[in-house]
Design a protein around this nucleic acid. Structure first.
Lengths: 203, 203, 203, 203
DNA sequence: TATGAATGAGCCTTCATTCAT
DNA sequence: AATGAATGAAGGCTCATTCAT
């Protein structure tokens, strides 16, 4: 059916813009935001660098929109996961599993978020940092609740532990390859099991 | 005595050179290698940027030497710790404790290593990456040995677990402040306890 | 009737074209020719910048046509005024009054003419300059005639005086606002009186 | 005396910077600020455009400093001239003579001031405009005083007249050539005589 | 008539590096 | 040991213009 083909090819309104953003994400991920030139992105898209500005308004804007986007998506996913029924330990399991899986499913953009948010202007950077702190807060609160209810060992230090767990999750983008042997879901459950075990064992 | 003179002439630059490297490390850590200009480093040292080239040969060289240095030191410390007597679990404890403490004690240079090694040329980057993989290898081998000797749970996946632990340790530079409440040694033992617990627990 | 159709098709563009020129004049006047982008003009008209090229052939062409137009109009008005009966002094009065009024009535286009004719290519600029010099010539000749006939003081230097008067007139676009308290005609007669007084007085 | 020569050639601390500013002024005057590229200035100086930034911090800064400079100098000269003893008419004569001469002596920088102050950012432009208005204020006040004391004709409109005189003076940069037949001082006195005549004659 | 996409040249600015002194 | 001046390449971005639709 040539008609169907035509329809899907016709006009593609904001499709090209998404292509540009995707290309930018790929290059940012590969070389880092600062080391990436507008030329690099243009090459990846296959147009001239001047032409890029038909789709973007500045290099930093591209970064910000990209980060904003993943950040919102990640936070939503996590909040939803933690909202489900369960005791603190089950919620921690869900938190880690969900966020680890999200990281594995979005290595490119999460990698940029974690590596390059510093390159944003003050205001925007603070906005991102503020949002990022929420993960930590949620996790730390769950650990405290787990200790209060006796599900988590007394010796556990909520602050350092939460930071350790976040660091563990935030490093997934360094090694996870979607084309590799592991599935993102597998990584999520392995990470979650590890964390839960570390909080409960030891007696 | 021309000899004495020579010796003192050779030594002075070294001291100043270390100052330059320290200044560079501070700025790299604060802004990232790519976002740091030679001017920034010169400002931090308090000399003109042209004068820097009396001590360094290129910006990348500074980075490389810095990374080499801390990398070697870290590896030495870890290898030594693991060489001590003990069963695999005890060795894992020592590994994590030592490396975590080292990270806390060297946030500036370890931060640069982990964030900016990508900016090196291909050859040098590979050299660093190759060395970095050794940590992973050591840890993974210890986990396998621990499983073989029944000290570590059967379900543990050595590969993912090793990566998770390394990620945990490698994120310390993000939050640890030498001037903060925690001592580096405390961080080390908390991390080590957490890891050991995660490997052994599980009812 | 293909003829009727043709005629109406040819005429429509003309109207829109005038709109475009007007919009361009407004923006040129507000920001200066060099600082005005084609985008600015398109925004003022309310169409896309690509669409502008249906009406214009280049940015410089727009400027040139605009300047040609007002220049011709100004010269016509002046020539007509000077052609009327009267002695040299009366003609100078008419000259200044007419040209000053014209300047006040056409601040936008006269402002562009006086501020931005330099941006034209060599040939066109020379064309404009050559025409502009005619005002000076006319005025200077009238001054000489006035001196010859004893109506104008002997000490008057025709060259510098003509230039001074022209400068006075050509600065009207800087401050005259059609919406302000003064009427254009008033400005004309005040200027003319001033000039005549300066040429005759001196006891 | 080679010594004297050496001394004057040695170190020339800010000499090169002045050369750069002079070159910039020349090009700005010839083509207008907006139409002048940094490349143009570099070519005029005879260095690479990147090298210019050793002496300047931005194109607009160069403009601003230049304008600031002439403006201050002009105002000082005028204020001093008006401060001298004399009746309002004599002061007006001094005002016009001084400012016209200053304009003739500084066609390049005054031309830039009058043609390109619009290109400054809002704040700086307002600063310049505010200072520029002072001339007008001074002159208008003198005219009013002249009318009050009966030295100036009753019919004179202080506002329009002041604007006309300022326009006359401000157009000198358009035609005056230091290499031409007229001396700057001559222009000053001719202008001043014209203005005084225009204010007093007519009875 | 008008749009949307792209071009290509040029612009201002930054920066690692060099070198004579 | 250090300075001051300059280089040359590159960077992000703007803009007049073109053209298929």
């Amino acid at each position: 059916m040539p008609e169907t083909k035509k329809r899907s090819e016709r006009k593609m309104p904001r499709k090209r813009r998404a292509e540009v953003l995707d290309a930018a994400a790929r290059v940012f991920h590969a070389k880092g935001y600062e080391a990436t030139s507008i030329q690099d992105i243009a090459d990846e898209v296959g147009i001239l660098k001047g032409s890029l500005y038909y789709y973007i308004s500045s290099k930093e804007d591209v970064l910000f929109e990209m980060l904003q986007e993943v950040h919102t998506a990640a936070l939503e996913t996590v909040v939803e996961a933690v909202a489900a029924d369960g005791n603190p330990l089950e919620k921690i399991h869900a938190f880690v599993e969900t966020l680890a899986r999200f990281n594995a499913e979005n290595t490119i953009r999460m990698g940029i978020l974690l590596h390059d948010f510093r390159s944003l202007g003050d205001e925007r950077r603070n906005e991102i940092v503020r949002e990022r702190d929420q993960y930590d807060k949620i996790l730390r609160k769950l650990i405290v609740e787990g200790k209060d209810s006796g599900l988590i060992r007394d010796e556990i230090d909520p602050k350092i532990t939460a930071l350790a767990v976040m660091g563990m999750i935030n490093s997934i983008y360094h090694w996870f390859k979607p084309s590799g042997p592991q599935r993102a879901g597998h990584v999520g459950s392995v990470y979650a099991d590890l964390v839960v075990a570390s909080l409960t064992s030891g007696s």
